[in-house]
Amino acid sequence: MALDGNTLAGPLSELFAVDVTAAVSRCAGCGQQDAVADLLVYGPDPGWVARCPGCDSVVLRIVRGPSAVWLDLHGSAALRIPL
């Protein structure tokens, strides 16, 4: 059962000074553009996985270890962050 992208507000706020859930991501798989808040999110364990609502491709992953956070954005062709 997927959660929505607003779930990522907490884990992303640890990494970014801006609210990334308001950003628009472009899926590297199908090109669909969605607000991060509208991505389909699975997690938190073993890590957060956000998928494109259009094609289910992985857009973003966050794994929080004891001494580091891994952020994978290779499924996001671009991220438009409003200023």
Binding site: G65, S67, A68, D72
Partner: peptide, 21 residues
């Protein structure tokens, strides 16, 4: 999938190989 974002390459529970390093 998980090994590429921080999880251990081998993952032996008896050596507690959870994360890279």
């Amino acid at each position: 999938f998980w090994e590429g974002v921080g999880y251990h390459d081998y993952g032996d529970p008896w050596r507690e190989q959870r994360y890279q390093g």
